[in-house]
Every structure is written in structure tokens, then in C-alpha cells.
């Protein structure tokens, strides 16, 4: 029951403080959790490859690593997609990227295949005609 009482707002203050404190800790936890999850150098397990210039024939490409595995192997493949025209290993730390300014050997098509330590492959390609 609501009553008028002098100098007795302790209960209300406790409720207000409870709400503020709990919300503060909840918000801080969620914000920190979100930040950790989106940290490129955090505990993710994915990576990406892309052409720096997707609209032109420039073969320069980038590997960006969001996982803990650091060793990648890239290959430029022949048009039949089995023969490697050139290849190399590259080490990229979590959260880092590496841009490879390639001089393409292929004549009709640039096919780039990148493999990580677990054998997972990704491919990008563009034609040269």
C-alpha cells in the first residue's frame, strides 16, 4: 500500500540502485562480449580472400586471417584448374592481412586457390579476355 512517510525512501532507493547496477553490469558484459567476438585477432576461425580490384584484370589479391591458423598456401592455377603455374606459402597472424601483388602467368584466366593449415580451400578467379 502506498502511504506518505517522512524520510523513508530507502526501499525505493534500493530498487533504483538495483536496477542501475544490474543494467550497468549487463551492458558492460554485453559490450565487452561483442567486442571480444568481433576482434579480428580473437578466437574466430575464418578467413577471406579477394581481389583488390574486382572490376579490372589486376590479379593483386589479399588474404585476411580471422582465425588462429597462420600458415596459408596460395597457387595460381592453369585454366584447367589442376596445374599450378606458381605457388608459395605465406604466414599471416590472426587479425592481419597480406596483399600479394601478383604477376599473373595464365593467359586466359587468373585462378587463385588458397589453402589453410586444415586443408580448407578458397578460390577466386577472373578472366583476362
Amino acid at each position: 500500500m502506498s502511504i506518505i512517510v517522512k524520510n523513508n525512501s530507502t526501499g525505493e532507493k534500493k530498487i533504483i540502485l538495483t536496477v542501475i547496477i544490474l543494467l550497468f553490469f549487463s551492458f558492460a558484459f554485453l559490450a565487452y562480449s561483442e567486442r571480444k567476438q568481433t576482434d579480428p585477432a580473437g578466437k574466430n576461425s575464418w578467413w577471406e580472400i579477394y581481389f583488390e580490384n574486382p572490376k579490372s584484370q589486376d590479379p593483386t589479391f589479399t588474404i585476411k586471417n580471422y582465425g588462429k591458423d597462420e600458415k596459408f598456401h596460395w597457387k595460381e592455377l592453369e585454366a584447367d584448374s589442376t596445374t599450378a603455374l606458381q605457388e608459395s606459402d605465406i604466414f599471416i597472424q590472426a587479425g592481419q592481412e597480406s596483399t600479394i601483388p601478383l604477376f599473373a602467368i595464365g593467359e586466359k584466366k587468373i585462378i587463385l586457390e588458397v589453402t589453410d593449415e586444415n586443408g580448407e580451400k578458397k578460390e577466386i578467379y577472373k578472366s583476362l579476355d
Binding site: 572490376k55 578458397k122 578460390e123 577466386i124 578467379y125 578472366s127
Partner: peptide, 19 residues
Amino acid sequence: LNNFWQVYSNNEINVYYRK
């Protein structure tokens, strides 16, 4: 299709550019 270049790839998504 020969007129689509696969210009980006991550674990879930591919991006194609239509020449």
C-alpha cells in the same frame, strides 16, 4: 557462367562480378 568472376570468398559467402 563465363561472364561472372568470383572476386571474393570467405567461409560462408562468395561475391561475383558480372563482366
